[in-house]
Each structure stands twice: as C-alpha cells, then as structure tokens.
Simulated scan of single mutants.
Amino acid sequence: MRMCKKWMALGLAAMMALSLTACKGSGSQGSKASDESAAAKAEGGEMAAAGGTDKSEKLVIYTNSGSNGRDAWLKDYAKQAGYNVEVVQIQGGDLANRIISEKNNPQADLVFGLNAMEYEKLKAESVLDPWEPNWKGDVDMTLGDADGYYYPIVIQPLVNIMNADLKNPPKDVTDLLSDEWTGKYTILNFGGGTGKTLLASLLVRYQDENGEAGISEEGWETAKRWIQNGHMEQQGEDYVGNVISGEIPICEMWGSGVLQNQTERDYKFQIMVPETGVPYVTEQIAMITGSKKRDLAVDFANWFGSAQVQAEWMKQFGTIPCQPDALNEASDDIKEFVNSVHPQTMDWEFVAFHIDQWVEKCELEFMQ
C-alpha cells in the first residue's frame, strides 16, 4: 500500500500548497520570456559549464507530455539555454513499451512524463539507471522513487470536462451509463496514460480478490456498459472542440490540458467531480539505460526540473509543478482548478499489477 499512500499525499500536498501560496503572476501562453525565464537560461548555462558537458551534442528525449506544442516549445526553450534536443512525443502506454523494445539498442537518452505505474514496469525490465538531480532536496520525494530511478516534476489530476451549458451534468462516471448519455461522452484510447488511468479509476471501485483480474462481475459489467455507451476517441478528431460545440459534450482530460484548452480556446469547462474523487498522477523524469550521453542527460534534467524552468513550463501549459518555488507562482486559474478537485483513493500497486490485463480484456471483449 506504499504507493497508494504516496498518491494520497500528493493530492493533499498539492491542494494545501496552492491554497497557502500567493499568486505571483499568471503569465500567458505564447508570451515573451519573462525575467524568470532569463534567470532559468542563465542558470542552465552555469550548471552545464560546471559539469563540463558539451551541450551541442544532441539529446533524444522521449515523452508522453509533448502534445499541444509542448515538444516544439521545449526544443526552442532548451536551445536558448544552449541545449540541442530532439523531443519525441509518444503516448503513455506505447512509450513504456517502446523503451522496453529498444532495451538492446536504446534510441533515447532520457524520458519524462510517465507516471510511477509505467516507471515501475521499466524498472522491472532494467531499462532505467539510478541517478540523482541537484533539485532532489526541493521536491517531496514521497512522490518519487525511493530507489532513485525516477523523480517527480508535475502533478496531473485526471478529469472529465463538460460543455459549459450542459444542463443537469452528470456527477460521476457511473451516471453516464444511462440512455440519456449514450454517445455523449468521449473515452480516450487505452494506449495513452490518461485513458488507461481513468479506466483503472473506475475498475478499482469494484476490487474483488476472487474476481477476474481482481475485479468483481459487477465491475466488469459496469466497464462494459461505460465503454459501449460512450464514444471511443478517433484518431485526428477534435474531441475538445466537440465538447465546446456540444456535439459530444463530455470528454476525459488531463489537468494541464484542461487549463491549456481553456486559455487557448477562451472557454470555461464544467468539471465532473465524483464524490470518490479523481485519480491524481505525477509525471516523473528518468535516465534510460545504455545512453552514451549520461552526463549531458543528467545536466539537462537538472535544468528542466529546476524551479525556474518548471515555473515557465507551468505558465506556458498550465501544469502543476512539484517544485514549491514554481508552485508559488501559480496563476489563479491553476489554483481554482486544483482546489475544485480532490484525489481518489487508489491502490496503485494493485493497479500496476493488473492494468495490462484490464486493458486487454476491455479492448478484446468490450470495444465494438
């Protein structure tokens, strides 16, 4: 139950921190670099010089958090700090499998964005190296790995967003099983971390040690009805636009995606907040075994995970940083969002053990 306690601590710590800290500046997407960003660039250069690394060498970074312009922004921002990076965006479930498949011929130097559930798989496959960032003492390491393989950078509550004008909106995912909501909610595919984790957040309510893959018959029937009554994400569709237009007024979304889309589209979503809470996950950063640029990869991770850079990442993309000094600069919309949700109690060790079985059963038996 160690990991379960970690994630509960994460949710409570995040909300307490945001409620106790003052908003020092909101920033905006696409804004010019602030004084803080200049300081971050300078600090990045100092750290690299101290480490004696050649920052002109190309670093290949795998992430599932490079969508919606994050990959391009990070590449350009890192370039200003002297780094030469290639950011490869791969959705969560596929990303872990990709790293494992490349075990004997690694193509990337480091990875960030995955949660502990995925990193535990990577540890078991011996594709990660232990390391230590220079900001380790700044973050709550109950959120990271006690063995030193991965470290926390961003908190992500996972929710369902809803059309602002939706009347009598559902309060829980289980409310969606009625005919009233047939075809009116989008489920993100289970290859991605958000879709997979939200599936798990439903199934863990029906934990049964005597049930198939640890889930009761009622739980599997509920999952079946939820999947078949909804709309599964289709490649290339604008599921956020469908929420705003009302065509499909409900959709799953990760926390920073909620905030980024609200800013970019000038729209305020309703948020579904079940009494049981919503799953909170923490994005982590780690070193891939076999990289020939280990020192440079660690140097980059020191820069990227610093309070200054995480503050800029937050201002650009609405992320919730694990760095307390970055969190101090949270904008009002970030504070409002985090204070509107609360963490669901989840046994993450149980989830990590069963998740692949759950996804396989749902894809083979329930998806039409």
Rank of each mutant, 00 (worst) to 15 (best):
R2S: 14
M3Q: 10
M3P: 07
K5Q: 11
K6M: 14
L12H: 09
A14P: 05
S19H: 02
C23K: 02
K24F: 01
S26I: 01
S31R: 13
G45H: 11
G51F: 08
T53Q: 06
L59E: 15
N68P: 13
N68Y: 15
G69I: 04
K75I: 12
Q80P: 04
E86Q: 10
G93R: 04
G93I: 01
D94P: 10
I99D: 10
A108F: 01
L110G: 02
G113Q: 03
N115K: 12
A116M: 13
L122F: 06
S126F: 11
S126C: 09
L128E: 00
D129W: 00
P133L: 02
G137E: 14
D138E: 15
D138Q: 14
L143F: 15
G144D: 13
D145M: 07
G148K: 08
G148S: 02
V154I: 12
Q156K: 07
V159W: 10
N163I: 14
L166R: 02
D172M: 08
L177E: 10
T182L: 13
G183H: 14
T194E: 08
N210H: 13
G211H: 07
I215S: 07
S216P: 13
E217N: 07
E218P: 10
R225T: 13
W226N: 05
E233F: 06
Q234D: 04
N242K: 13
I244F: 12
G246N: 15
E247M: 09
E252M: 13
E252Q: 15
G257Q: 03
V258G: 00
D266P: 10
Y267A: 09
Y267R: 03
V273M: 01
G277V: 06
V278H: 07
P279N: 08
T282Y: 12
Q284R: 03
A286R: 00
M287P: 02
S291H: 07
F300M: 12
A301F: 05
W303S: 01
S306D: 11
K315Y: 02
Q316H: 04
Q316Y: 00
P321T: 09
P324Q: 13
D325I: 11
N328E: 12
A330C: 07
K335R: 15
H342C: 05
V351L: 03
A352P: 03
F353L: 15
H354D: 14
I355D: 09
K361N: 10
E365H: 01
